[in-house]
Amino acid sequence: MTHFRHYFAACLRQRTRLFGFACGLEVAIVAGIIFLMAIGWINSDLSVDSAQGALVSGGILAAIVLYIRLAAFTEHTWGRNLDRLVPISESARYTANQLATLVWFCAFFLLQIVLWNLFAVLDGGAFNFTSGDWGFGSWLLAVLTLSFLWGFVLVSLVHLLTTLITTFLPGRRQKLVTQVLYVLVAIAVIWFINWVIDLITHIAGSALKGWFNHAFNVEGTHFGERPGILFIALAVFALIIAGFSAVNVYLLKHWTETQTQP
């Protein structure tokens, strides 16, 4: 049997090109914007401030492209013999792939934060974080990381559910049927998630009501004074992701075949 760390390392290696592509794309966008500024097509002075603006635009665009490409790559992994023939349990396969996808996206995201801060320093700013800022920053980073993962998990869920439904449909016009199914399943999943959130909110009632306001000082409470409720919210979010991941692993293990064509 293949060891998890070997497979995880292979999953990371497979996605290196996507990360490299996103970095290249960002450089190209930033260079393009600066070039357009230099020749006067964009009405702005060439300064550290405008370069920082270009970097933010380039970073966001490249991040969107990277997110889509990583999600698509992971989705295709479930139907690839090259990956599915590796002797490892489906839960380990699923975890290694989602984790590798998340690691590369977070790496790109962190790279952006470092670059933006470097530009801020160049522009005369300084790192001056209080302990409260670090606490809030860590919490926000955790929320963002879980949100990124949540997106990847949902993309896989839509793909795996579509694959499952396709198995029970007649074999004719498979491509068209699958595309229509993708849209319908995506709508159904979004509707289901909304329904679950409504249900949780209804059941939790006053316990959860207003937690966001408390956390962000809207009602006079500072973040540092109420970290517990925020971390409970994080834990609930992580549990929901784990639940959906369990469904994905079940679908992968029992219902997902690989492609037959090379």
Binding site: Q14, N81, L82, L85, T258, Q259, T260, P262
Partner: peptide
Amino acid sequence: YSALLAGAP
């Protein structure tokens, strides 16, 4: 299994 490359990049 010889169909190892099905879906390979």
